[in-house]
Amino acid sequence: MARFRVNGKEHQLDIEPDMPLLWALRDELGLSGTKFGCGVAACGACTVQVNGNPVRSCVTPVSAVEGSDITTIEGLAVNASLTPVQQAWIDHQVPQCGYCQSGMIMAVSALLASNPSPSDAEIDGAISNVCRCGTYPRIRQAIRSLRASA
């Protein structure tokens, strides 16, 4: 039995301990905002936060998140009020196809929570997610606009 909280809600799932968190979220819990991109932690489309840390859920077995607090893209906005990162994504018209953006937003949110004013080099180092549409120039602008000193 796997136990963890997703977006504040307690879940108990009768699933294999080695099932990746991604598939538990998508196929067992029906939370489809977290995306499957590569299955080998190379693209970041599946990024969620585990106890506030960015984690690539496609290679994270549920046994590794036992008892943890998991936040997915669906859990960011509280009472339909967007987070500053989500709002910046709209203000800068970042998404194109949008498929990678859940993971992108989760990774950026975690970065800014731990480092509210990252340098460009720190941004480049921390955000290695793939966006095939190439929305990177706008992602960079959006993150810069969110810096604490901005």
């Binding site: 905002g33 893209i73 960011l76 994504w89 709209i90 998404p95």
Partner: peptide, 21 residues
């Protein structure tokens, strides 16, 4: 003009083919 499809693409609600559940 701001794109109409963007709000659903920042909160995980945009539905792709893979999201059929």
């Amino acid at each position: 003009i701001p794109r109409v499809d963007i709000p659903a693409k920042v909160d995980g609600s945009a539905q792709y083919g893979i999201d059929a559940h």
